[in-house]
Design a protein around this nucleic acid. Structure first.
Lengths: 156, 156
DNA sequence: CCATTGTTGAAACGTCTCTTTCAAAGTTAA
DNA sequence: TTAACTTTGAAAGAGACGTTTCAACAATGG
């Protein structure tokens, strides 16, 4: 069970600020959230230890590294055996073009977000990689015309 | 038009490393990618200026801030007027629980990923917020049973 | 009421970092 | 080859940074 730690308003301001800019110095963070540097530093460390604060990552411009096209793909499993599911999830984690994967209720088993350079690139992934996986029974692909919003900032 | 900058293998290693850990010091980054500190620092700055390197953000544990449930929601517009579309996209950007939004080809106009605490929380969002928006003609919601994979790391 | 426990802010420390400069090495083109 | 241009690595300095310690304060429970 995941324990929901109690967060006061200063903690929340810390989380808010660091979600937007992970490179803030402790001093700057401290007076942005209205506390002393020492206290702020202790709070940050506590939030890290508690697992609330995760990794600091650098975001890239997808187009600049030739991954400007998003495809959303529904997947149906050939079978629902534990074996088959486990193999598929290992496969998903190993494929770098698969950015997100959700196990779904309803008519499809999974929803994937895949980043590719262009349509030809996706065709290769679909035909040679995804549909060749033994666990996969079927797939329905939907190209995103554009990305209207993308954020990593959770409301706190 | 988005220019795809030329990246050599050291640039790529820099991008790879910083996508995983935005807090690496320049010195550590330098010898991880195999170059001098000075050269590495210049490369990083150039990648920032070119817009390849975007913001550094801190990721949170969604469950710890009570946003552990993902809902994928297809939306159909009531009309496709420029007016209606514009209003909807402004709305999307303003709602913090909407993490991602893609404009789609096919039978639905948009796909949204929404983070909520629980089912009741989502019911409120759907009935009182999303379906009440004048641009929205219909929606189909799908709850994620679990998040199999989530990464911000693009293949470089 | 006192005792205990936890949290706060200020100060101080030494460490590490960023950033620039400069000469050398490498690359390109004529 | 020569000349122009770019990229490289080492050195160095100033400054900022994280981290600890300490005393004061607040909250809690008996």
């Amino acid at each position: 069970m995941k324990s929901t730690v109690e967060l006061d308003s200063i903690d929340r301001r810390i989380l808010e600020a660091l979600q937007e800019n992970a490179l803030l110095s402790n001093a700057e963070l401290a007076d942005r959230v209205g506390s002393s540097a020492a206290s702020c530093w202790r709070r940050v460390r506590a939030l890290e230890v508690a697992g609330v604060l995760g990794p600091a990552v650098r975001l890239l411009d997808p187009a600049a590294v030739d991954r400007g096209v998003n495809v959303l793909c529904n997947v149906r499993m050939r079978s629902h055996s534990r074996e088959s599911i486990g193999q598929f999830e290992i496969f998903v984690r190993g494929r770098p073009e698969i950015m997100e994967c959700y196990s779904m209720s309803g008519e499809w088993d999974y929803l994937l977000r895949i980043v590719v350079a262009d349509v030809a690139d996706y065709e290769h992934f679909l035909m040679r990689v995804l549909l060749e996986h033994p666990s996969v029974g079927g797939a329905a692909s939907h190209f995103a015309l554009s990305q209207t919003k993308y954020t990593t900032k959770l409301p706190v």
